[in-house]
Design a protein around this nucleic acid. Sequence first.
DNA 1: CTTGCGGTTAAGAAAC
DNA 2: GTTTCTTAACCGCAAG
Length: 391
Amino acid sequence: MELLAGNCRKRVDDDFPEDVDPFDGSDGGCDWMYGSRQSGSLRMRPHGDDDALATLAELAPPPQKLKPIRCGVKAPLEDRHPLDILAGTLDRLPEMGFLGDGCFEAPLGSKIADVEKSGQLTRGFEKVEEMELEGRLSRHGTSWDGVSRSSSVDSDSESESDSSHGVRRGKRKRKTREKMEHFLEKVVGSMMKRQEKMHKQLIKVMEKMEFERIRREEAWRKQETERMKQNEEERKQEMARSLSLITFIKTVVGEEIEIPKFCDPPKPPQNLLQHSESAQRQGETKFGYASGTRWPPEEVQALIASRSEVEEQTGTHKGAIWDVISAKMKERGYDRSPKKCKEKWENMNKYYKRVMEGGKKQRPGHSKTRSYFEQLGNLYKTNSASAEQEE
DNA sequence: CTTGCGGTTAAGAAAC
DNA sequence: GTTTCTTAACCGCAAG
């Protein structure tokens, strides 16, 4: 498009006289198409023989202010037919970045050549006329240049014009134009097809990449699940070893060893996941924990144990105690944020106090849900006892 | 600003 | 179906 807009400075190779000013009237370089602006246009000479060129002139009216395609250096005007020049330019479109590689099965130039050979793009000369012309041109020392040819032919043909000639020319003109249009349609159609094909290919590649990404993700998930399972196995083995050790010590010592509650086999880190999974099948449990936010009794006990541990260690409730508690909960296999731990603790205590103060009777069926009451009560007792001792 | 605490509310489950 | 219990989550206030 840049080329057509006239601002393309890209240098193409020598086949195309890119440095030639197509509208430069000084040497008549573009008169073949637009007619001489100095000595009168082609159309001013109705009896010109070069019908195809005349057609081109009709198709492309002379530009008024459009800047021609220029490049840095002026090259000598070639003795080439304009259609050859056009073909050469079209063939360079891919190089110039207008079309992708292989936009056309064969070079456009060759297509044009084919069209010419098959007579689709006749230049409007009959063999005889052409030979005649050649002779005349050579007599005038003019090269095979559209302008020279057309102008010299025009001047001569004026004298030879007759009515039958005019009718034939008119027909040829129409025919040529139709063929030109047909050819251009074909070119555009071919370009569009090519672009469509490329677009489809691009979509295919994108789909393939997306598929690959999903596949990798799946593989990663699988791997992660495997790793978790392995961890769980190791933990179980460790627990079994510990239990057998404890049993052995028991038999050796002959005394009952109290195992702290928090030494219960910890749940795997994915217990939250399990909760959500089990929540679905937990019409079976008292509370479905359907929301996934409810704390199961074991988790509540773990929280209380963690809290009492930290309290023993620090002796204070201040500071980042809930961070420590959250970390301890994680060690036990429960993933709860410090904020959640704190909230749960507060809510639990609130409810405990409310119930204790209110002296409400526990629902028999709900005794399980308040399994933490006992632990909390113990905790309060020990706390108050230690406070009394300090006093 | 952080922390602890009390109050409130909506939602879910069990008891009636 | 209604009532009651239990819980999570949010808000505000006071103390440090």
